[in-house]
Nucleic acid binder design. Structure first.
Lengths: 331, 331
DNA sequence: CAATGATCGTGAATCGTTTCAAGCTGTGCT
DNA sequence: AGCACAGCTTGAAACGATTCACGATCATTG
């Protein structure tokens, strides 16, 4: 409980507090000998600087918040990891928060981050209205929207071109000769999923005799995918290929089809979207559209840091990364 | 950038700063009318209290750190979620950090948390020596070891009885009539995995004619499981049942076996350990040993909060939760 | 009416840093 | 010697909250 402050260190090293602070922050200003003396004092006392005091004095922190929809979702954790790596590389710390897809919790996360006086926030918004973004920015907090297009918003954004991703997927299936297609997505169609569908529909229009039926499931989970498999088989005519809005759904579909004795891809081709770790190791390794998750997080973090550093003189950037096709065995 | 402080709020509401602080922290001490006036001032100015100043003054924070080995691992995120839920319920905030299994990063996480003056830390230690624990506790930081037995350590701990889990798994396989067993685990056998093996071996000894060969894989991943599948088939005699140290491995094994045309569980039964979300939706739904992850995190958080609150008068607790068998189809 | 409490508010001290103007040395130059 | 200057160091003033001893007000009561 011995609260060791910079003051004790100073006394022990026989210098002033200002000097200790300099050793900590601008060591080059301090003479070699003094520096060493202070360093050993710090060591001996086991001093750890009080970040709160530091922040209070400086008025801001080298800390950025990352608000994701669900920490238990590998997609988000990969993005978060990319973001954290970029932040660490620039000497920033990351504060990871989950909104659990709840507007209320998202709100609480943002308040928490505001109280911490973070200098920026990366967020996959569940219910972030323009005025809330404006409020954050008015406080001098850089905001980068993750994976949301909302270009009207007064903030930077980093996203993946999901429409292109949807096109890529459908074009692949069409190239394989499939004409009766199905799309499985979620009822509460999140923006990225809608874009994928838009891209898919756009690609479909290029080929006259191709058709696509859309199935809405309650969630983007493997369980939902399993149910979708049954609905797919009930369809007449049965589609020969399915594009799932994410890998979780696709894995559920593939596994359930295999259980039901339907051969993938011979009797039904299945494509996913995301390329999560499991995609490679599904019952039938999943052909999917890879999102550059780590790169997305990294880029977003860099943008936030740039905005936080530039201060006022800042033009919002809208970065768009393009996903790519990963061909495995399911299609 | 308008840094609104309690001072501006006070001026606007025509009261002293002390009163504003009281409205924030002990509203019952403030007369109805004043309270309302202050509240609207806060609202109008969009005031958000500066947590750093608060912490600095109070000397501690209602914040706990959670250091996990890998945020991208659903097991840890589930535990973390349980912990966060418990903390929020008690008005604490959680700071989630990843050590990525690296001693160096773990060290950095702990320093970060110390600088934040958290009042407690839940940690799945990768390389946490007693002196480091002592150091944390000397600073008045409660420490709860997650999922590590190390009862010699001067800290609370919350863990799952993995030996019991191992026994449960093997007993289930034995009860099904299997006699030639295999165990797949990781080369760098983490403590929980070693315990599972110990329990498995203990259970095995009860049945005279049963044998078990142990396969070490480079990691606890689905990919490693796929490789393991091949090694299993190369064994003579081929085992009739496999117990994998975690579900990821088991999923890899199941999927690869299915690909190779080996029927699960008819030709080879497979059991996992953890009961992650995917376990239920694997090619063959996985029979596994469920760990009470959420409860583990919750319990650990409660212990940390208790220790942080009790202060000195505190006896370390060692909580042990028992896992249970989840029978699906793979065994 | 004076004394007693209860109820509210006040304002200064404090937490541990960072920052910066100013001071102190010692060296080199004229 | 006198001066300029660089290199170090100092010490006090912030930062924005909380806390607490102390006033102020007012109703109650003997």
């Amino acid at each position: 409980m011995t609260r060791t402050s910079i003051r004790e260190v100073a006394r022990r090293a026989g210098v002033s507090v200002g000097t200790v602070s300099n050793v900590l922050n601008r060591p080059d200003l301090v003479a070699e000998a003094t520096r060493a003396r202070v360093r050993t004092a710090i060591e001996e006392l086991g001093f750890v600087r009080n970040e709160s005091a530091r922040r209070l004095r400086q008025g801001h922190s080298r800390t950025l918040g990352v608000v994701v929809e669900d920490v238990a979702n590998p997609y988000f954790t990969d993005v978060a990891k990319g973001a954290e790596a970029a932040m660490n590389a620039d000497g920033f710390d990351a504060l990871l928060c989950t909104s659990d897809g709840l507007a209320g919790k998202e709100q609480r996360c943002l308040e928490f981050l505001e109280e911490q006086r973070v200098s920026g926030v990366l967020i996959t918004p569940v219910d972030l209205r323009p005025e809330r973004i404006a409020r954050l920015r008015a406080r001098g907090i850089a905001v980068v929207l993750l994976d949301r297009r909302d270009s009207t918003a007064d903030a930077c954004s980093a996203r993946v071109d999901h429409a292109a991703g949807g096109e890529i997927a459908i074009n692949h299936l069409l190239a394989l000769g499939h004409r009766r297609l199905a799309l499985v997505t979620a009822e509460s169609e999140p923006e990225p999923c809608r874009e994928r569908r838009t891209g898919a529909e756009r690609a479909l229009r290029q080929t006259a005799e191709a058709s696509m039926v859309t199935l809405y499931q309650p969630a983007l989970t493997a369980t939902a995918g399993q149910h979708a498999a049954h609905r797919l088989l009930d369809l007449t005519p049965t589609p020969s290929a399915v594009f799932c809005a994410n890998d979780l759904l696709a894995i559920g579909v593939v596994n359930e089809l295999m259980r039901l004795g339907v051969k993938v891809p011979a009797e039904m081709a299945v494509m996913g979207y995301d390329d999560i770790e499991f995609a490679a190791t599904a019952a039938t390794p999943l052909t999917t559209v890879r999102q550059p998750r780590h790169a997305l997080g990294w880029a977003a973090a860099e943008m936030a840091i740039a905005e936080a550093t530039d201060g006022m003189a800042h033009d919002h950037q809208h970065m768009v990364l393009t996903p790519d096709l990963v061909i495995r065995e399911s299609a």
